[in-house]
């Protein structure tokens, strides 16, 4: 077994442990045995209701949201060959949030169930395309990040505008939710809504592994190895949009997961994107599950936003990366 296999195995175990912990931690104090019994066998009764309808969807969504964010971060970094690419930073998440908010406030989401994830997907796809165009084939880190800031700011402003104009007095208070993300009080409905899109997105992104490997040698080398770059770009756009769009539609925009995880894991699994992709998915799941557990431990009765914690870890990390890059460029 190589270091890479050991790392993957350990990550899987960690994710499983965190998933169980997420199921067992909550504001209602339930016994360990009692809750496991209720989850697996229980019918009726308040404990079974809490476990199956409140905690299980929350833990599942933590796992899924983290996995797609980690995966799309790694894929974007591979495709753009830029260590700062990440769905949150380049505005994909906030555009997906805008799509979701628009479909909710126009009543489209109420007219048919899939409208919510689909419009979040459309928002995300638009942002990915815009970023790819702005960053260009040889775009530097700076142009990518600046384009991302502009897209994020625009999408964030439009989201706030739509929510401010809503006839619903609660909508205004939810600007923070859409920008920071939360898994509180989600239900299995949300899991079923997001799961198909996330699965398709992950499938598309994992299929980019070999193409991204070739791309590390440069575009010309990749083309000479028979990699169809247009197809690769399409896979990245559709995969990221589908995965991130679905994740934002049900959990809001959680930032920095896709930035931090690929960097932390690269030393363990090596720089090859095809190796990094699955590891980043596992790492992302671990990070979001940890953040969601921390949110419940720090402020059990308040809905502390997930993005607050991931940004507390991610933003200093981002600064550290910028510092290192500055050294390289100078």
């Amino acid at each position: 077994m190589t270091l890479r296999h050991i790392a993957l195995l350990l990550l899987s175990l960690l994710v499983m442990a965190l998933f169980l912990a997420s199921l067992l931690i909550g504001p209602a104090a339930l016994g360990l045995k009692q809750s496991v019994m209720a989850l697996l066998a229980g019918e009726g009764g308040p404990v079974a209701l809490v476990m199956q309808e409140i905690r299980l969807p929350r833990a599942l969504l933590g796992l899924l949201v983290g996995a797609v964010l980690g995966l799309s971060g790694a894929a974007m970094q591979g495709f753009l060959r830029n260590p700062l690419a990440e769905p949150g930073l380049v505005g994909v998440s906030s555009s997906a949030a805008l799509g979701a908010v628009l479909s909710l406030q126009t009543g489209l989401a109420a007219s048919f169930a899939l409208a919510l994830p689909l419009s979040a997907l459309a928002g995300a796809a638009l942002a990915v395309l815009l970023v790819l165009v702005m960053a260009g084939p040889r775009g530097g880190a700076l142009s990518l990040i600046l384009a991302g800031i502009a897209i994020s700011a625009l999408a964030g402003a439009l989201t706030s505008l739509v929510l401010n104009l809503s006839p619903n007095p609660f909508a205004v208070m939810e600007i923070v939710y859409w920008m920071m993300g939360s898994l509180a009080d989600r239900s299995m409905t949300h899991v079923w809504l997001a799961l198909p899109f996330m699965a398709i997105g992950c499938g598309l992104l994992l299929a980019t592994g070999r193409g991204l490997d070739a791309l590390t040698l440069g575009e010309d080398a990749a083309r000479s190895m028979g990699v169809d770059l247009a197809r690769l770009r399409l896979l990245i756009v559709l995969g990221t949009a589908s995965a991130v769009g679905a994740s934002v539609a049900v959990a809001g925009a959680v930032g920095f997961v896709g930035l931090v995880m690929p960097h932390l894991l690269r030393p363990l699994v090596g720089g090859r994107p095809s190796h990094l992709l699955p590891a980043a998915a596992l790492g992302g799941a671990a990070m979001v599950l940890t953040a969601d557990i921390a949110v419940r431990l720090i402020a059990p009765d308040q809905d502390l936003k997930l993005g607050v914690l991931t940004a507390l870890v991610g933003a200093p990390f981002f600064l550290h990366l910028l510092w290192r890059m500055r050294g390289l460029e100078a």
Binding site: E53, I54, A110, F170, E174, S187
Partner: peptide, 14 residues
């Protein structure tokens, strides 16, 4: 009228 996530809790399956 108009949707909000705050009110979604009132239609939570649980």
């Amino acid at each position: 009228p108009g949707a909000s996530r705050s009110e979604e809790i009132l239609s939570h399956p649980a």
